[in-house]
């Protein structure tokens, strides 16, 4: 760390935080405004004369927003569990075991992480349609898991390589099998890395839009991002309700970020920064 920060720095800090958070603050205000203050002369007031929770109420009673939230939660959770399991055993093999073709696998994984998803959508859509999996949770979990794998494998491989290999050797000398080494020695140490990856995968699955838009088109199977975009009528934008819904979705993410920010940062930067 370098020199201490001066007072001017704190002014910058306040301005920075305000600019970054401003859209949220404004949307939060909008979500509490009655229609009369949302539009027209009062539209730019910072103070709400008659704050109301009507928008929140309408989102949950007049729209299937609860269903969207449930679909998103199920899909994101299952995607996280499945992809973390598959990716962690693959990353374990790449980081700790000796076999040929590791570099090729890692290169392939990196290349796939750069694939534009639009280039895969038509075959995946046709495949899921022929299997009867459109408008189902599984129809989203399959592509989500696949596209979460590259980043998850990459992140965990980087993390697993930092775990001292001596421990594995010691376990081997004590007569442990590869699977015992994995479950008794390795995974307990690897938990922080796995957890970090899980958070990032969860957020990515929660936020995904293109697959959700094309694969689950039935009202009862939509996820939150698609559901909110479809709030708009043909000629009107119900800004009050959109704001309320946006705040409802943002709050759990904000809590998650506040709780796990250090882990998320380490997960996001581990692949990019060489030490």
């Amino acid at each position: 760390m370098q020199k201490k920060a001066g007072p001017l720095f704190y002014v910058f800090l306040v301005v920075f935080v305000f600019v970054v958070m401003f859209p949220f603050l404004w949307v939060l205000l909008a979500s509490l405004k009655p229609p009369g203050e949302l539009f027209g002369a009062n539209a730019f007031n910072f103070i709400i004369q008659n704050p109301t929770f009507d928008n929140y109420l309408r989102v949950f009673t007049q729209r299937p927003f609860g269903t969207y939230l449930w679909n998103s939660t199920v899909v994101a959770t299952l995607t996280t569990v499945v992809s973390v399991i598959i990716a962690s055993i693959a990353a374990y093999a790449i980081a700790w075991l000796n076999f040929r073709g590791k570099t090729i696998v890692l290169g392939l994984v990196l290349a796939v992480s750069m694939f534009p998803q639009i280039a895969t959508i038509s075959p995946i859509f046709m495949f899921l349609q022929s299997m009867g999996l459109t408008n189902s949770w599984l129809g989203l979990i399959i592509p989500y898991t696949t596209f979460a794998l590259p980043l998850a494998i990459w992140n965990m491989t980087v993390f697993f390589r930092k775990i001292p290999y001596d421990l594995a050797e010691a376990a081997k000398i004590d007569g442990a099998s590869i699977f015992q080494t994995m479950s008794k020695v390795f995974f307990p140490l690897a938990m922080p890395g796995i957890f970090t990856t899980a958070i990032i995968v969860f957020i990515a699955a929660w936020n995904e839009f293109l697959f959700a838009l094309t694969i689950n088109t039935e009202e009862a199977m939509k996820t939150v991002p698609v559901g909110i975009v479809m709030f708009q009528g043909q000629y009107t934008m119900p800004w009050g309700e959109i704001s309320a819904a946006a705040i409802v979705v943002t709050i759990p993410l904000v809590i998650m970020v506040l709780l796990f920010q250090k882990r998320i940062v380490s997960g996001l930067t581990s692949g990019a920064v060489k030490e």
């Binding site: 970054v20 958070m21 936020n207 698609v226």
Partner: peptide, 21 residues
């Protein structure tokens, strides 16, 4: 750190709708 992560964490379509507003 939190104010950096929050824009990153929210769904892009939701931030797009916010900006549209």
């Amino acid at each position: 750190r939190a104010s950096i992560l929050i824009p990153w964490a929210i769904p892009t379509v939701i931030s797009a709708l916010m900006w549209r507003f």
